[in-house]
Design a protein around this nucleic acid. Structure first.
Ligand code: FES
Ligand code: FES
Lengths: 147, 147
DNA sequence: GTATTGTTGACCAACATAGTCTACAATAAT
DNA sequence: ATTATTGTAGACTATGTTGGTCAACAATAC
């Protein structure tokens, strides 16, 4: 029952972007450094986010990446989905065909409840919310933010 | 965000036992057949459950395994924990030391909410509940149960 | 044109998953 | 006591996933 680094790193990278929204493109290198993610790895993580239209990128000098839409329009479940695939704890929760007898499987109902609970939480939180939380944490401590 | 087969198979195996509670030892072979789990694999899954005192086993002819305590005293989170380890979506949710700066990580709060939600669900359901659900499903269909 | 940035894809080491197979230990029935 | 029957333990393995690295390439500001 583990979230992969992809989802976590991606979330952190986007949080970073949310915190710098409106300041123009941010260098991948800077995100990588601040979040302590390997640059080469981050490159891979950012790709699907660009493809999905969450992130806009510009190449060349003064280039970088930035959020392609307001932080309040990006929900965490989107991010996780793009990087880790469906939230489902088991295949059959999404596609009945995965397990042969999904029709009469009591455990399956439980897995579905799990899925729903997770999805409800993740889809209730926007990047904006996350950024606000982060800022609150930092102000409380009075230090430079880091994640 | 996936539950491994261990947790799923284990749950199904225990459900099977719950449905046969009070009928004496059930053969591993029978569980394996009914649940379509490889016997050799099931043997591995049952071991930690025995060690944890959820299941009692007797060897030799007329042997087999059975629930070591009433089905209403076994909660799903126990089973999952024994077979899949901590529910935590990320390390740092359990042990702060896993991530260096867990103190000021907003995402971490989210992961903790996720953990709590999952745990709440799993710990609210006992094997007895699961068995009842299963029986209800079968009666509704009027067929032999299978999972 | 050149330095700078993102983009792509090939490649890889380590680990986890989902098993199999074999030898062994206990015990009930005879 | 022997034997057939059951669970127990451990070594082994094949496959996939994770979490990367590296090098070549494409776009663009200057
Ligand atoms: S149907 Fe997929 S777990 Fe039972
Ligand atoms: S502290 Fe572990 S994800 Fe941020």
């Amino acid at each position: 029952m583990r979230l992969s680094t992809r989802g976590r790193y991606g979330t952190r990278a986007l949080l970073e972007l949310a915190l710098h929204q409106g300041e123009g493109p941010v260098l991948l290198r800077d995100i990588a450094r601040k979040q302590e993610i390997s640059l080469s790895y981050l490159e891979h993580l950012i790709t699907p986010l660009i493809a999905a239209g969450l992130v806009a990128s510009t190449r060349g000098p003064k280039g970088g990446v930035m959020l392609a839409k307001p932080a309040e329009e990006i929900r965490l479940n989107e991010i996780i989905y793009l990087l880790d695939g469906p939230i489902a704890p088991v295949e059959c929760v999404n596609s009945k065909k995965a397990c042969a007898r999904s029709e009469k499987c009591a455990p399956r109902d439980i897995w579905q409840e799990l899925r729903k609970a997770m999805n409800d939480i993740l889809s209730s939180i926007t990047l904006k919310d996350l950024a606000s939380r982060q800022i609150a944490k930092e102000e409380f401590e009075g230090t430079m933010y880091y994640i």
